[in-house]
């Protein structure tokens, strides 16, 4: 019985190289790093997040530092008011940075909770199939049937004092359905894959099959959709705080800033523009990163065969 070398080793031996086995994940990461737009976006996003987390150290003025003498200034370089000041003389750059911090906090919490819960529900539904799947899906359908934004507003109106954590929890209670659908679809198709059946035949328990075999193979779409959920959460959160049914003052939020600046927006354009640009930048970078992840993922799928 001949022992066959793989094609890769043959070529490698001929060229005197030492071939290292590359796992799917290594190929995936390598491919992602090559995606220029995604990498640039990643850098920008990290910069923004770091800035927001270190708001105290970064900003030249305190968040609430009123200075009526300097009120209503357009953006200038002198005095360090890069984003101008509002009608109470507070440095706008500072306020935007603090607002960004709240937004990022809510977005991360929402992403974590909705991904965890959505994955759990989707995995169980996709693996079990049958009536369990049906019941869980009817349940998610019920959540979808009533208009999301309206429900969120109602919940926050009656239940909330407007703390970022609470807003994040309420948002998660609706956004998990997106991930659940994706995970369920993935698991339904994976369940029929032969290596999953082979694992079952080898004696693996359902949890082992889900954890070791199905979840790692579904991780790609989960990650991509988790990033998209972050972007969605940011947009919804800022909309909610804009109309007053989200994060309430004194906790700063970008939507709030826009709402406050609305009255004088035709003259003091910077009050509305800068928070909006910040939201757009964050969401844009997240979307580009998500796109890069998706591309890297597709390449990995192609590599499999």
């Amino acid at each position: 019985m001949t022992i066959e070398p793989t094609a890769a080793t043959l070529i490698a031996e001929r060229e005197g190289l030492n071939v290292k086995p590359r796992s799917q994940w290594q190929l995936f990461i390598k491919r992602f790093l090559r995606h220029r737009v995604a990498m640039v976006s990643l850098v920008i996003l990290i910069a923004i997040v770091l800035a927001a987390l270190n708001a105290e150290r970064l900003t030249p003025y305190p968040f609430d530092g009123m200075n009526l003498k300097d009120s209503n200034l357009a953006p200038t370089v002198e005095g360090g008011h890069f984003f101008g000041t509002d009608k109470l003389g507070r440095d706008y750059f500072t306020r935007v940075v603090y607002g960004t911090r709240t937004t990022i906090f809510v977005a991360i919490v929402v992403a974590l909770i909705s991904t965890l819960f959505g994955t759990l529900v989707g995995a169980v539904a996709g693996y079990a199939g049958g009536w369990i799947d049906n019941a869980l899906m009817r349940f998610t359908d019920l959540v979808i049937i009533l208009p999301g934004l309206a429900l969120l507003m109602i919940m926050i109106a009656f239940l909330g004092e407007g703390s970022p954590l609470q807003v994040a929890l309420i948002l998660s209670s609706l956004l998990w359905t997106l991930i659940a659908r994706i995970v369920r679809a993935q698991f339904l198709s994976l369940r029929r894959r032969e290596f999953v059946e082979a694992a079952i035949l080898a004696g693996a328990s359902p949890w082992r099959v889900i954890w070791r075999h199905m979840l790692p193979n579904a991780l790609g779409p989960i990650i991509v959709n988790a990033t998209l959920t972050i972007s969605t959460a940011i947009l919804i959160e800022s909309a909610l705080s804009f109309i007053g049914f989200g994060v309430k003052p004194p906790t700063p939020a970008l939507g709030q800033l826009i709402s406050a600046g609305r009255g004088s927006m035709s003259t003091q354009w910077w009050l509305v523009t800068f928070p909006g640009l910040m939201i757009i930048t964050i969401c844009l970078t997240i979307n580009f990163i998500g796109d890069g992840l998706r591309d890297a993922l597709d390449a990995r799928q192609a590599q499999r065969s």
Binding site: S23, Q24, W25, R193, E194, F195, E197, A198, A199, L201, H213, P216, N217, R304, S305
Partner: peptide
């Protein structure tokens, strides 16, 4: 035991 048909999906790629 059982041997599957499709060599491209009977092994966990990861």
């Amino acid at each position: 035991q059982y041997v599957f048909q499709d060599p491209y999906s009977s092994l966990n790629p990861l």
